[in-house]
Simulated assay, not measured.
Amino acid sequence: MTTSLRFSLQTPTWAGAAAMRTLLCAEQTEALDGLDVPLVQIIGTADPALSVRGARWVAEQVGGKLIEFDCGHYPMLEMADAFDEALLAAV
């Protein structure tokens, strides 16, 4: 089991629930208006926690770049070489 996955599984349920509640209920779209740096998102298309549709919408709103990998929530572990290459290309 990877360190990130182990760490995620050790998160107390109350903390995970609070984090998800914040993410799902907080209005954050107004922060996009003031964004003046290049945005690159890397997401797994099979991510059970993050919305690919939402990531596509954000990329459209700010003219950002979205890199999609055929993997789950941890592209940096599931497709490490491709992730590293994409990350290095972005910086």
Rank of each mutant, 00 (worst) to 15 (best):
A80F: 00
I43D: 11
E85A: 15
I67C: 08
A46H: 14
T45I: 15
L66P: 13
K65W: 08
T22P: 02
C71H: 09
G63H: 04
Y74Q: 10
C71K: 03
P12Q: 06
P75F: 07
P38S: 09
A26P: 01
F69S: 09
L5G: 03
G72W: 08
L35D: 08
P12M: 01
M20P: 00
L88P: 01
Q28N: 03
D70S: 15
G63F: 09
D81T: 15
G64S: 06
F69A: 02
P75R: 09
D33N: 12
E78L: 13
G16S: 12
A89G: 15
K65D: 15
D70A: 14
M20C: 03
A89C: 10
M76Q: 15
A55V: 02
L32A: 09
F69T: 06
I67W: 01
P75N: 06
S8W: 10
G54S: 07
Q41R: 04
D33F: 02
R56V: 11
F69V: 09
E68V: 09
T2H: 13
C71Y: 06
I43S: 07
S4K: 09
T3K: 13
L32H: 03
R53N: 08
V40K: 03
E30M: 05
R56T: 03
A90F: 07
E30G: 01
E30K: 07
A86H: 00
D70Y: 10
M20H: 00
